Amino acid sequence: MEKQDSELKYLRAKTRVEKLKAFYTHLTVYFVINTVITAVKVMNNIHNGETYNEAFFDFSTVASWLVWGVGLALHAFSVFGLPLILGDDWEARKIEEYMNDELQQHKSSK
């Protein structure tokens, strides 16, 4: 039983690290891609005769930051905020619940 408990703790920790790693990857890609998009749009707008301020603060320039930012915020909430609301052991409780349900179905089918 103790070995199973330590394995379960390890799997939970591994899952949390994988979710954190995925979020940091998403965050890095967000900044890199949006920086490139912004630079290209600003240079293009300046080439078309706009001033730097007009080009930089144009809605189409910042739209990708905003739209993608909403998705990034939701991802951050799922990694950092959801465990605060549901509790750290929510995942373990759900796994146990599904395992118990399956056990009950298996017993009743015999």
Rank of each mutant, 00 (worst) to 15 (best):
I33C: 06
T51E: 09
Y24S: 07
T38I: 05
T15D: 15
Y30K: 01
L27Y: 05
E2W: 12
K21W: 14
N45G: 09
G69D: 05
T35M: 08
Y24E: 12
T28R: 06
M1W: 09
L27F: 06
L66M: 12
Q4P: 03
K14N: 08
R16F: 03
V17K: 15
V36E: 07
Y24I: 11
W65F: 10
T35R: 05
F31C: 10
E2I: 07
N44P: 02
F59K: 10
F23R: 01
A55D: 02
Y10F: 09
T38Y: 02
G69Q: 01
A63G: 07
W68N: 09
N34C: 04
T61Y: 01
M43A: 13
E7M: 13
R12S: 11
Y30E: 02
T28Q: 12
V29T: 07
F59T: 06
E7T: 06
E50S: 11
A13Q: 12
L11M: 11
N44M: 14
T28Y: 09
A13T: 10
T25D: 11
M1N: 10
A63T: 00
L27S: 03
K3D: 14
F31A: 02
Y24A: 09
T35W: 08
Y30R: 00
Q4F: 09
Q4A: 14
N44F: 14
T15M: 14
A22F: 13
W68R: 08
Q4M: 11
I33A: 11
S64E: 04
K19M: 12
W65Y: 05
W68E: 07
A22V: 05
H47C: 11
K9E: 07
R16Y: 10
Y10H: 12
N53V: 03
I37K: 02
E50G: 02
E2S: 12
E2F: 12
L11P: 04
S64M: 13
Y30T: 05
D5N: 14
A55F: 01
I37C: 06
E18H: 15
Q4D: 15
V62W: 00
N34F: 00
T51C: 03
F31L: 12
F57K: 03
K3Q: 15
K19F: 07
N45D: 12
W65M: 06
